[in-house]
């Protein structure tokens, strides 16, 4: 059996070199770190997961909300809120007219691919490049606000930043989008950052997690 490696594919995560200890599975035409031999308990404690190869897309314009609605996706009522589709996608509303949709591991993001195939409205709805412009890192576990407080000046405690909240802010001095959500009941902060700064932020987050026993996890640790 030949092992799957990130370099088996043309599409590669921005941080795959940080994942040399992982075993990989194929997801959306790339290698997804699946297992780092620490499992769900680690994810419950403090985990850092790279989901950068998982499909995601975005749309901006006056007709973007209608486009998503037509595709059957739940559109959050206000900017900086996230909603979850029945099929598990996260719909992020970043402004009145900007939306990102993050794919679900369960279908390897297939619904994002089909969304990208849908014809766009005639005007005022522009696809965005967040698949490549941003890396997708997800923090998991019981200490998310405390971990983020080491890199970010926004109050992300439950009272101020409940489930479904989004913060577009600065973490470790780079721009990020932080989303408070859950995967299979596991508390998660998804952090989307400049893909060119992914390795930098990866390092910063691991450092911040250290005192909470944080480790890199694979997608298998989510279930």
């Amino acid at each position: 059996m030949s092992a799957i490696t990130p370099e088996s594919f043309s599409k590669r995560s921005f941080v795959y070199r940080q994942l040399s200890a992982a075993s990989f599975t194929e997801v959306a035409g790339a290698a997804q770190a699946a297992d780092l031999k620490n499992g769900r308990n680690q994810a419950m404690q403090a985990g850092l997961l790279d989901l950068s190869v998982l499909p995601r897309t975005g749309f901006r314009g006056l007709n973007a909300a209608a486009h998503l609605q037509a595709a059957g996706l739940p559109v959050p009522a206000k900017p900086n809120q996230a909603s979850v589709a029945d099929s598990g996608e996260l719909v992020l509303r970043l402004s009145q007219k900007e939306f990102w949709v993050l794919g679900n591991l369960a279908d390897e993001g297939a619904r994002i691919d089909s969304l990208n195939q849908q014809p766009l409205p005639d005007s005022n709805c522009y696809p965005l490049y967040c698949q490549d412009s941003h890396a997708w890192l997800t923090l998991t576990g019981a200490h998310l606000p405390a971990i983020m407080a080491k890199v970010c000046g926004v109050d992300l405690r439950e009272e101020a930043f409940p489930l479904g909240s989004i913060a577009q802010t600065s973490a470790a001095r780079i721009n990020v989008v932080i989303v408070n959500h859950q995967i299979n009941g596991l508390p998660c902060f998804t952090v989307l950052c400049d893909s060119a700064a992914a390795e930098y932020l990866w390092e910063c987050l691991l450092d911040a997690m250290g005192e909470f026993g944080g480790e890199v996890i694979g997608s298998g640790a989510l279930s």
Binding site: P79, N80, S95, G153, V154, A167, Q168, T169, S170
Partner: peptide
Amino acid sequence: MKIMPCPLNGPRNISEF
């Protein structure tokens, strides 16, 4: 640090602006 109330994102450290 000064706080600036952003109409889109709410009150934030001035260093974000």
